[in-house]
């Protein structure tokens, strides 16, 4: 591995550790995501009662919960730096891409950690069942990576704006739409118990779009981060 890449990863790990440490102390994003997900799931769960919804409805419901949970919590990593005026201090300490990668990893860990709670809760509240786990897990994992990538990059852009909340939802949705469409279709196939070969196109779309977003983010982040 070239020394520059090793240095970049080492610096990213330092940012990741700092954000994790700060999150464990304040539980800012953790609480925002968990509360949103639990309240939404509970409200929908009680409203449908014992009725078992079809896969066509369950799949979008799952991704609506995941998408809005991501929106409500994942932007904090950048917004907090600007609000607490620590962003300039960070700019003087680390390379821009190390900051982006570190924060991207933090968001990945945060969302995956919460999905361990949110997804089983979804299955319980919605009386749902994934018939094909070999489709469900790759779709959720790659789809979540895509959501994190979109949310992290848009958060970096909007953290410099004054109307952050509204801008985040407006900018993130159109960019996340291809991910949501492929993820919802893939999840529906998993709920219906389709064979793995049926979801290959969805997985390819999710994977390609996630790689594109990460690549574009790494190429553009320095311009976004430097004022």
């Amino acid at each position: 591995m070239p020394r520059s890449v090793w240095m970049l990863l080492k610096q990213s790990a330092i940012v990741f550790q700092k954000d994790l440490h700060l999150e464990f102390r304040t539980r800012y994003a953790l609480n925002a995501i968990a509360m949103f997900a639990i309240i939404t799931l509970t409200a929908v769960g009680f409203s449908i009662g014992p009725t078992r919804l079809s896969a066509v409805v369950q799949a979008p419901l799952l991704w609506i919960v995941l998408y809005f949970s991501a929106i409500s919590g994942l932007s904090h990593v950048f917004i907090r730096e600007e609000e607490q005026q620590t962003a300039d201090t960070l700019r003087l300490a680390l390379e821009p891409n190390a900051i982006y990668i570190g924060k991207w990893f933090f968001n990945v860990v945060l969302l995956f950690g919460l999905e361990i709670i949110i997804i089983p809760l979804f299955f319980i509240m919605m009386n749902a069942r994934a018939e094909s786990l070999e489709i469900f897990f790759p779709v959720v994992i790659i789809g979540s990576l895509g959501l994190v990538s979109v949310a992290s990059f848009i958060a970096a852009i909007i953290s410099l704006a004054s109307t952050r909340g509204a801008l985040f939802a407006v900018l993130a949705f159109p960019i996340a739409l291809p991910i949501l469409i492929a993820a919802i279709h893939g999840t529906r196939l998993a709920f219906e118990g389709a064979p793995f070969s049926d979801c290959l196109n969805d997985l390819k779309s999710l994977f390609s779009f996630t790689v594109i977003i990460i690549t574009v983010s790494l190429l553009l982040f320095e311009f976004v981060w430097r004022k």
Binding site: L22, T26, Q84, Q85, T86, T89, R91, L92, A93, E95
Partner: peptide, 16 residues
């Protein structure tokens, strides 16, 4: 940035 040190009112540290 590796060669620079800065002290200014707009540079804040993590208060938590």
């Amino acid at each position: 940035y590796r060669h620079i040190g800065l002290v200014g009112p707009y540079l804040q540290l993590y208060r938590d």
